[in-house]
Design a binder for these strands. Structure first.
Lengths: 64, 64
DNA sequence: ATAAAATGTAAGATATACTTTGCATTAAGG
DNA sequence: CCTTAATGCAAAGTATATCTTACATTTTAT
C-alpha cells in the first residue's frame, strides 16, 4: 500500500524526493519506491526518514 | 543497539520468543536477533511485532 | 537434581531491500 | 516557449534480512 502520509509530510515541508533521500542516506529511487508502496523499508531507514521530516514513526508509518 | 524495550514488553506479556515469532510470522531466530540488535527489521515486521505486543511503533522502536 | 523449555549462536541458502545507471515524462519557472 | 528540476520506471548488481537446520547453554519448574 502506498505511503500517503509520508508523501504528504514531505510535500508539506517542500522538500523533494532527492533532498529527502540525501538527508536520509539513501537514493532517490528508494524514497520513490517507499512512497509508492513497492518497498518495505528497514526500521533504520524509517527512523532516518522520520528524523528528516521531524515526525515520529507512528505519525507516518503506523496504520491501525 | 539492543532492543531493550521490545524484550521488556514481551516479558511483560509472558510470551516467549518462539510464541512472538509464530504470531508475527517469522522464526524464533529472527526475533532473537532483533532483540539483540543484530538485525535491522523491516517495517512490516516491526508492525507485526507491535500488533502482537499490543503497542505502537513509537513505544518499542523509537529512540530520540 | 533432573527434565523440559527458552534462549544463544552459527553456517549455508534464499528473498528482497537498496544501489547504480540511464532514459522518459511531467511540472515549474524564466 | 525553453530550460531545469522533479518524478516515474527499468535492468543488473550488491548487501543483508530472513529461513532452515542444528547444537550448546541457560533458565524454569518439578
Amino acid at each position: 500500500m502506498k505511503n500517503i502520509k509520508m508523501k504528504l509530510k514531505r510535500k508539506e515541508l517542500h522538500i523533494s524526493q532527492t533532498e529527502l533521500a540525501k538527508k536520509a542516506g539513501v537514493t532517490r529511487q528508494t524514497i520513490g519506491l517507499i512512497e509508492s508502496g513497492e518497498f518495505n523499508p528497514s526500521l533504520k531507514l524509517c527512523v532516518a526518514i522520520c528524523k528528516t521530516l521531524n515526525v515520529t514513526l507512528d505519525e507516518i508509518f503506523w496504520e491501525e
